[in-house]
Write a protein that binds this DNA or RNA. Structure first.
Lengths: 245, 245
DNA sequence: TCGTATTTTGACCCAGCGTCAAAATACGGT
DNA sequence: ACCGTATTTTGACGCTGGGTCAAAATACGA
């Protein structure tokens, strides 16, 4: 009976595929719960029930609840990196590409609000222990890639003479500034009723702040001498493709 | 025997004082634990043990663990407001006072790192329910005061002709930008090894980013035409007084 | 068909939050 | 000084939810 003899290799991969599918399933369920009802709503027993496997099985994928959170963060950062790299391919001047990255930061939050929530939660929950080192490594690598994308654009700007970096200020420092502005801005927008405090159009304001900062650094062309609205539209078109999770 | 007849009024206040003392004690212990070992290290039983009262007594001050966290946040924001208001009194041009506020944001983190940690944790932990409405009100009021301080400086800047606000952009929007920059910046500094990612002198970079942003808005005098180093030194001197908790 | 390796299961342990009836204490009146 | 009432404090207890592990189920090869 040759039919029931499945090559060990194929069997292995089929199993691996199923395992992978299940891991994704766990992450999806966890992400939804976390985003819907916060940390309080994330419960290992419920996750197990929802995916129709036992708790022990969940614990074979993730060694602890924290590790599961870390898994969510890694997935989130991966999708962010995907969006960023795409944005950085926008044809045009360095600051236009930077604009595209800014747009992608906004799109990231619009498209994957759950991922952003997770990133935020991880931001301030000192986890690190009790989590799989491999997952930690993956997260760090993804962050590193984000930085590298920025730094690349920055170097191009310097090379083209559009940007002159101050002393002791690298392209990564600029990235740090923009990152602070976006992260801080979106965090505040999501956690507080800013309109009530007198802030007009907070989300739009983030974009404006982004450009004000770049203007302040003297990154040419300045927003007064260029139509970044058009650039934004092009970036949105570029990033509209492939709307998958 | 008139001596054992203590006026009801005095008795009441003595009790109130003791109660207040105990509340402060609880908050101090909780803050230290939280800052030292994160959420995992914050434990109602241990707090009770450490202050040498029973758990029930702790629960008379705070209706839940979340409520205790909210209490910590309120205390943190209060001390921030104190620092901000002081900073806003620096004599000089509007942007100098803004510089002083920036300095106070840094000092806040240096002086009360525990408070900052707490604010961060609260930032992303959806609590609100299960907490005393009065405490919520107090927290919102303190945030509102921070905004008001900024907005006041902004209005002065506009009045003096040092700042021209774009359309649909209020002084509060500027505050929002600076707030994002500082909060995001300090959060990143505290949570990640930025040097490893290529960022030179992250804390100093926050200050530079702050001024780059203000330059971008065209808030005069621009950093190229004024010695804000001197302003910073003055602000530090002003804020050095009264180093109490 | 059977024995071994692997995977899955869920009962179980325990930490920790929040409750509440009982104990302790304070206080006012006699 | 004594007692009764009001207030405060206590800690045992209930219960939820994270994490473990021996036993059951399943897969696989001979």
């Amino acid at each position: 009976m040759a039919t029931d003899v499945i090559p060990a290799d194929a069997s292995r991969t089929r199993k691996q595929r199923e395992w992978q599918r299940r891991e994704t399933l766990i992450l999806d369920v966890a992400r939804r719960r976390l985003s819907e009802s916060g940390m309080a709503g994330l419960n290992m027993d419920q996750i197990a029930a929802e995916i129709e496997y036992s708790k022990g099985t969940v614990y074979q994928h993730f060694r602890s609840k924290d590790d599961l959170l870390m898994g969510l963060a890694a997935a989130a950062t991966d999708s962010r990196v995907a969006l960023f790299s795409k944005a950085a391919t926008l044809p045009g001047r360095s600051r236009e590409r930077l604009t595209a990255i800014g747009v992608s930061a906004r799109l990231f939050i619009e498209r994957y609000p759950d991922h952003f929530r997770v990133e935020q939660i991880l931001e301030l929950t000192q986890i690190r222990d009790k989590t799989d080192p491999e997952r930690q490594r993956r997260l760090a690598a993804a962050e590193s890639r984000c930085m590298a994308i920025f730094a690349g654009v920055g170097r191009d700007g310097v090379a083209a003479g559009d940007l002159v970096l101050p002393e002791n200020f690298s392209a990564e420092n600029v990235a740090f500034g923009l990152w602070s502005l976006c992260m801080g801005g979106f965090t505040l927008v999501m956690s507080r009723p800013l309109e009530e405090l007198g802030v007009i159009d907070p989300p739009g304001s983030i974009f404006r702040n982004y450009h004000a900062y770049l203007d302040g650094l003297g990154w040419r062309p300045l927003s007064g001498e260029f139509d970044y609205g058009e650039t934004t539209a092009r970036a949105e078109a570029l990033l509209a493709e492939r709307p998958e999770t």
